[in-house]
Design a protein around this nucleic acid. Sequence first.
DNA 1: AAATTCAATTCCATTAAATGGAATATCCGG
DNA 2: CCGGATATTCCATTTAATGGAATTGAATTT
Lengths: 264, 264
Amino acid sequence: MTSKKASASKSGTGTLGKAMAVLGIIAASPHPPRFTEILRKSDQPRGTLHRQLTNLVEEGLLNIRPDMSYELGYNLLKFAASAWAGNEFRLIAEPHLSRLHELTGETVHLGVLRDGQVIYLDKVEGTQSVRMYSQIGNASPLYCTGVGKAAISVLPQAEMEKCIASTIFHKYTDHTLKNANELRTEIEQIKLSGNAYDREEHEIGIRCVAAPIYSPNRTFVAGVSVTGPAYRVSADTLEGWAGLVRGTANAIMDDMSTRLGPRT
Amino acid sequence: MTSKKASASKSGTGTLGKAMAVLGIIAASPHPPRFTEILRKSDQPRGTLHRQLTNLVEEGLLNIRPDMSYELGYNLLKFAASAWAGNEFRLIAEPHLSRLHELTGETVHLGVLRDGQVIYLDKVEGTQSVRMYSQIGNASPLYCTGVGKAAISVLPQAEMEKCIASTIFHKYTDHTLKNANELRTEIEQIKLSGNAYDREEHEIGIRCVAAPIYSPNRTFVAGVSVTGPAYRVSADTLEGWAGLVRGTANAIMDDMSTRLGPRT
DNA sequence: AAATTCAATTCCATTAAATGGAATATCCGG
DNA sequence: CCGGATATTCCATTTAATGGAATTGAATTT
């Protein structure tokens, strides 16, 4: 009985939850899946799934392509543009991120913790002709990103453990942390210094230093980071920026408490 | 009977539709609304709305802020990032947009028609440190944007009329088209030349030339444009680019028919 | 501090909508 | 034109959403 309830609360509860689960399946597919393919990955019966897909298409959350494959719909972009432009936390952080970028000359990221992942909220980078939007909205793992490790370090013990326990340690590079204990050790260091580092743990040649941002009650947890290519940014340079990044995080927290009210 | 069915299909049908309607209300609010405010704008009863909000928060489509106001949630960004990165039409168009940008030196936009609006899908611009996400996902009116007018010009007659009929002509600038007849006249010219222009109709100082993109059966309709500031881009320059923009649109359509199969 | 007001939340009998197994229609390659 | 796979529709059953009313909670005033 209890096990039944526990599994039920896991995901896909209610009509909306199931619809989101379907979106998730399609988002996770490497190519636009067709009906039968989605049916296989979902645990819904034919009739049900078909109607769900029809509804999602009707709402513009999915596009159905001429070959009957499904891809995420344009209304998601529409809502996301609104979400991004209107997000108060991001708006508060924005000037601080710009300042940090000016002082360091390297790329600055802002990310929030959500469902055991980092979701990048904003990015300020140099005048590179790289494609934009490369990062915003992207969900990345906690254990191999500066923002992720910074964020997790300020979580209440119980939640931190939950995050760590549910982590699967994919080895992105030779420097990627290998298991929960390595992560726990590193988090202790982050707690002491107030800074997290990514030492080419996610991508070879990319380094970063980050600092945590959080509400007093820790229900909201985020992070800010400066990222640069290893050839241009030495480990020492990175450490030199640590205080600056912490300062940016603190300034953002100050602004939050004054603008959103201190009882967060 | 028929009227009942017609009005029912309008909006907010089914559980999912109602949820989206709530998201829409919150997206449209100039500031994060609280429960009672949303209640007033929606036509749902208290209990119903409250549970809908709770569900949306649970799915990460809404955030609830410490002062009990609601803003759009981070999962929308997550899904949108996926939608953007995976969108095949955008991927096909991408190199063509870059090329058009290189040839003109001005900002290039790609937008699709959806629910009588243009939704911008991509943007290629010069090395400006302008904010990202400034345009992508944004929904703009048809009658005063190059992409919008280009798109509407290739719609089947019936749908075009539906779009025009439901348009309200807000006067953004002195050059904004004033009514349905002016729009109809202009569309006739676009059909002949294959190019649409925005002559400071949406924003003073901004000009643009666009061309339509469409599937053979016209169920998919989009547009590509080159936009620039009036002080740098004369009306003549713009006309000089018209063929180039049409060429880009045609090249994209060619790629579409080869990559997505010709029976679109 | 008690009283008043306004907003948010919970409850639960009723109602409406989602479900899902099976039948049917449609597409595609041979 | 046929056979096999895929997508779509149907409708009795089940499950989840509904919504009016009562409760809780928080802020404001007397």
